[in-house]
């Protein structure tokens, strides 16, 4: 009986080991070169200027992707829920398409399109647009593509979030008090679907930090691409940075999970209640 009880943990332990061992190994490899603790592998952060450039590029892309995603998807979904429920299935299919098309096909398509535009000749408008989109300081083409890649998951999450709130009542209540629809979305709707929003943001961040194939195909040096480049001559540094990146992503996940609970209306209400009770007991004690 006891054996049975404990045996339930076997799969859990197996999965934990499966996840933990490579991570622990990479940490060991990164900070124990030759069996002695050293952070020398991380000196690459200060020594290699291309890392800073890649990090800045990745962060810029991430921020722009998140903003674009929120600013386009949330109002579109709110509009569909409020005024055009019949269009919802169409929007759903559109947003799910990127899941069906393999990323490498998307990359090839984008490449072909940019190439075609570039071939229109120096000085022509399509060529200029192509150049502008691939500008290594701000590769907008990656932002656009990452937004598309995020859509299937973020759509589902935000759609589910909007279903759980009395959207129409909130929007009408806000409108009659003088708010515009966009104002309502940012002041009322988004705060009430915090969980879905945080998931979307986290998902987009994780995707932007980790995406390799598209960035590499378009030869934009984001952090994953940099890691691959560096691994050929300084393998230890690439592993060290990968570990760091991994930790950052997990940290973000942790923050997202905790804050989703903390800022949820129910949680806030409960805390306010506790505070109130404390106050009244103090008052009662004082008098």
């Amino acid at each position: 009986m006891d054996a049975l009880k404990h045996s339930r943990w076997v799969p859990v332990a197996a999965v934990a080991l499966y996840v933990a061992i490579p991570v622990l190994c990479s940490i060991y490899y990164a900070v124990f070169p030759g069996g002695e603790f050293s952070l020398r592998a991380y000196s690459v952060i200060t020594e290699d200027a291309s890392l800073a450039a890649a990090a800045t590029r990745t962060l810029t892309i991430t921020v722009l992707t998140v903003i674009t995603l929120v600013v386009t998807l949330v109002p579109a979904l709110v509009a569909v829920h409020l005024w055009a429920p019949k269009l919802r299935p169409i929007l759903e299919i559109l947003c799910t398409l990127p899941l069906v098309v393999p990323p490498i096909a998307i990359a090839a398509g984008v490449m072909a399109l940019l190439g075609m535009a570039a071939r229109q000749g120096r000085g022509s408008v399509p060529n200029a647009i192509s150049q502008f989109l691939q500008n290594p300081d701000l590769p907008l083409i990656l932002v656009g593509t990452y937004v598309v890649l995020c859509l299937p998951f973020t759509f589902r999450s935000i759609d589910a979030g909007l279903r759980t709130i009395p959207l129409k009542a909130m929007v009408e209540g806000s409108a009659i008090l003088g708010s515009s629809t966009f104002g309502t979305i940012f002041r009322v709707v988004i705060p009430n679907i915090r969980g879905s929003m945080l998931f979307s943001v986290f998902f987009a961040v994780a995707l932007c930090f980790g995406e390799y194939s598209l960035a590499a195909t378009l030869s934009q040096q984001t952090i994953p691409v940099w890691l691959d480049d560096v691994s050929s001559n300084n393998f230890r540094a690439s592993v060290a940075i990968a570990v760091l990146l991994n930790m950052t992503t997990w940290g973000l996940l942790l923050v997202a999970t905790l804050s989703a609970g903390r800022f949820a209306p129910a949680g806030r209400a409960a805390r306010a209640e506790k505070k109130l009770q404390k106050k009244t007991t103090q008052k009662a004690l004082a008098s």
């Binding site: 709130i165 009395p166 009542a169 909130m170 009408e172 209540g173 806000s174 409108a175 009659i176 008090l177 003088g178 708010s179 515009s180 104002g183 002041r187 009322v188 705060p191 009430n192 915090r194 209306p265 806030r268 306010a272």
Partner: peptide, 30 residues
Amino acid sequence: NRRGIGMVFQAYSLFPNMTVQDNVEYGLRV
């Protein structure tokens, strides 16, 4: 939103993410 009319709904439609105070202030904040 530009009629300046006040309204009370059957289902209250208060904003659950705001305190009572913030709910009442909302129209003025806008």
